[in-house]
Design a protein around this nucleic acid. Structure first.
Lengths: 334, 334
DNA sequence: CTGAAAGCGCTTACAG
DNA sequence: CTGAAAGCGCTTACAG
């Protein structure tokens, strides 16, 4: 099956390739109506579709961006990338989403592959462990936006939640409901991840604000598959916490599994708040109080920011990052 | 920031572009060790990355496939595309996932855009309403694989669940637990969708098998946002069903919302089985009996099938479709 | 063992 | 108002 090219269209319409190209790019400033009609007909007759690869090579723009999420298992990642795709679509951009799987090596490979594919820009949930690479992109003035996390000393603006506020909202609510022994469980293989650090900090500050002493046995940061053991430890203590803040959706689900298995009552035996508004929160029994991230807005903002950088070729950011406010969804688990 | 090209590398290494290209493509059959070393060094010194767009234009292969899912909101779609990506990755292919949103117009636009981008093949969850387009791809011997659904008279092989069996497993289990008034709710704007038809058929056959008369008031097919009203109607009847099979995950969630709101007991007031094994099934109260699809295997199979078609340039399928067995996950909701 | 040349399918100054 | 020519960055027969 021979592919139809612009040359075939030109022949068919008895004009030159240039003219067809002008037509395709809607530059018909001076193009004769009759010529236009002939080209239109030829394109339809032949079922011609322009080859975007060829166009990209010439124009040095693929109208495609890459998104590298740290870990696609979080609903946050899925929702944000969906919203990025929506914005891009409206602007005629395509999106290639890659999952770094919390692995800096994979992240590096994806960044390199996507750049080799000439994507026009990159939205990255940075693992944080490819500093040289990030810096190189900056030096080359390559359009990049960070999401969910920032990287110290890498001046790329990042779209982030007000993580400290997220924890604070949760702690305030716990305290209001007379809980004072409040635990925190986060998952993060990599220590220096912004949300983990900030949510921990927000938790600590909020406790202090309420005059509650911090207890290091109430704080745990482990991989998702280890949450069960962490809970065994934390709840097996003499004075166990009677409330736990789950640092993200995966932790929350692990906690719920644990609660189910041990036949604990929520909130009587254990009060729970999860950061990330999971799909089943509103119809779980009891309904689950969560701190929701504005995932849609955050995705939209990051896409717009990147597309602006791409179009205006203005790479430096006017501000370090963009923060979004979380919302406490009060339900029955506290 | 001037991009480094193969010409720069050639200069730096004082060889020709051809030789660099040979090196890049690992055709060093007769290449001198010393030449190799010089090229290697030049590439490193310059930080050269080949431009894949240029390569694609010449080689007429982008090493990218497109996936068009009918509706990304189903976990099934997400899980399957993740597994497709895994397979593709191993084979050095990239994946662009698009969401047709159950809209044939969007589906058409995506198919055309992706083909214009020269993706090497397409995995489609067909809406079913672009028959001409499907047929044209077949005529042009363009590599396509269908997933989740098949399209009558379009001989493209499709990776599908044994949908009738899925319903049958559920009905058998209901009956075993002494339910005989069994309802079915599916969502499908478009009527002729394979899974909907087959799940309905499986439901009907299974009822017959158990000597239960079919009651059309027990069957409903509506959009997700109308499930609530459908339930009001169905359960408001004189002899309402005491068990409902949810045709997919979204329906299940709507049913659970309804049950929660009306304060019904599961399974005493209403027994429930959902097709699609939702994330919270194992720790919901009660735990939810589901019919699980082997999403991972199905994604893998479809990717392998497509990559084979692409590589072997063998477009015709030896068999019409590939069916996968569902698994009943017995829990407490029946 | 390596290089010169043509070509993939477009776009874009420029000439007329 | 339209066309000839160059060029985007590669790869690939072919010649030597």
């Amino acid at each position: 099956m021979k592919k139809i090219t612009i040359a075939d269209v030109a022949n068919q319409a008895t004009v030159s390739k240039s003219t067809v190209s002008q037509y395709l790019n809607e530059r018909y400033d001076y193009m004769g109506e009759e010529t236009k009609a002939r080209i239109k007909k030829a394109i339809e007759d032949l079922g011609y579709q322009p080859n975007i690869v060829a166009r990209s090579l010439k124009q040095k723009s693929t109208k495609t961006i890459g998104v590298i999420v740290a870990n696609i298992l979080h609903t946050f990642s899925t929702e944000v990338s969906r919203s990025i795709e929506d914005v891009c679509n409206e602007e005629g951009f395509h999106t290639i989403v890659c999952n770094a799987d919390d692995d800096p090596v994979k992240e590096k490979r994806y960044i390199e592959m996507l750049r080799a594919k000439q994507v026009d820009g990159l939205i990255i949930f940075p693992t944080g462990n490819n500093r040289e690479l990030y810096q190189r992109m900056l030096d080359e003035k390559y359009p990049v936006v960070f999401l969910d996390r920032s990287v110290p000393d890498i001046p790329v603006s990042s779209i982030m939640l007000e993580n400290e506020v997220a924890s604070e909202l949760a702690i305030d609510h716990f305290v209001e409901k007379n809980h004072r022994r409040i635990g925190l469980i986060t998952t993060s293989i990599i220590d220096s991840i912004t949300p983990r650090l900030e949510r921990l900090k927000g938790y600590q500050n909020a406790l202090k604000k309420h005059g509650i002493a911090e207890n290091e046995n109430y704080i745990s940061s482990v991989a998702p598959q280890e949450v069960q053991t962490a809970l065994d430890q934390m709840l097996g203590q003499n004075q166990p916490p009677d409330a736990i803040l789950a640092g993200n959706d995966l932790v929350l689900m692990e906690i719920l599994k644990y609660v189910k298995q041990k036949d604990l009552r929520i909130p009587e035996d254990l009060a729970i708040i999860g950061i990330d508004d999971v799909s089943f929160a509103s119809f779980y029994t009891p309904t689950i109080t969560t701190v929701a991230q504005p995932t849609f807005k955050m995705g939209k903002m990051s896409a717009e920011l990147l597309l602006n950088k791409i179009k205006q070729n203005k790479i430096r950011d006017d501000r370090p990052d963009y923060r979004f406010k979380p919302t406490l969804m009060i339900r029955e688990s506290v």
